[in-house]
Simulated scan of single mutants.
Amino acid sequence: MATPHPARQAHVPEGAFTYPIEARAPTRWFGFILLRDFTLLAFSSALDPLRVANQLAQKPLYGWVVMSADGQPVRASSGVELGVDGGLDALTDDLELFVCSGNRGTEVASDAVLAAIRRHARFGGQVGGICTGAMTLARAGLLKDKRFTLHWENQPGFIEAFPGLTPARTRFEADGKIRTCSGGSASTEMMLSIIAQDYGQDFAIAVADMCLNDPNLTPGREQRSSIARAIDSRNPKLLHVLRAMYANIEEPLSLEELARDAGVSRRQMERQFTQSLGDPPATIYRNIRLDRAHSLLAETDMSVMEVATACGFNSVSVLTRHFKRRFGTTPFGKRSRR
Rank of each mutant, 00 (worst) to 15 (best):
residue 257 E to K: 14
residue 223 Q to N: 09
residue 242 L to H: 03
residue 240 H to T: 12
residue 191 M to V: 12
residue 204 A to C: 05
residue 203 F to T: 01
residue 226 S to M: 09
residue 229 R to Q: 07
residue 226 S to R: 04
residue 234 R to Y: 09
residue 246 Y to M: 06
residue 240 H to Y: 10
residue 224 R to P: 06
residue 221 R to F: 07
residue 247 A to M: 09
residue 200 G to A: 00
residue 264 V to I: 13
residue 188 T to D: 00
residue 235 N to K: 05
residue 205 I to K: 08
residue 236 P to Y: 00
residue 229 R to T: 03
residue 263 G to W: 10
residue 221 R to D: 02
residue 178 I to S: 07
residue 226 S to P: 08
residue 191 M to C: 04
residue 233 S to I: 00
residue 183 G to K: 05
residue 265 S to V: 09
residue 179 R to W: 14
residue 214 D to N: 13
residue 251 E to I: 12
residue 176 G to T: 07
residue 258 L to W: 09
residue 177 K to T: 11
residue 195 I to E: 03
residue 258 L to R: 08
residue 253 L to C: 12
residue 214 D to Y: 11
residue 202 D to H: 02
residue 222 E to M: 13
residue 234 R to K: 12
residue 247 A to I: 04
residue 221 R to K: 12
residue 198 D to T: 06
residue 218 T to P: 02
residue 246 Y to W: 04
residue 238 L to V: 00
residue 193 S to G: 05
residue 233 S to Q: 03
residue 241 V to M: 13
residue 215 P to G: 09
residue 191 M to Q: 02
residue 187 S to N: 04
residue 228 A to R: 09
residue 231 I to P: 04
residue 201 Q to H: 13
residue 265 S to F: 08
residue 241 V to C: 15
residue 234 R to V: 02
residue 239 L to M: 12
residue 247 A to K: 09
residue 209 D to L: 14
residue 177 K to D: 14
residue 242 L to W: 01
residue 264 V to R: 05
residue 240 H to P: 05
residue 221 R to Y: 06
residue 206 A to E: 01
residue 258 L to E: 08
residue 196 A to C: 04
residue 225 S to E: 04
residue 202 D to Q: 01
residue 255 L to Q: 14
residue 191 M to P: 05
residue 213 N to A: 15
residue 199 Y to C: 03
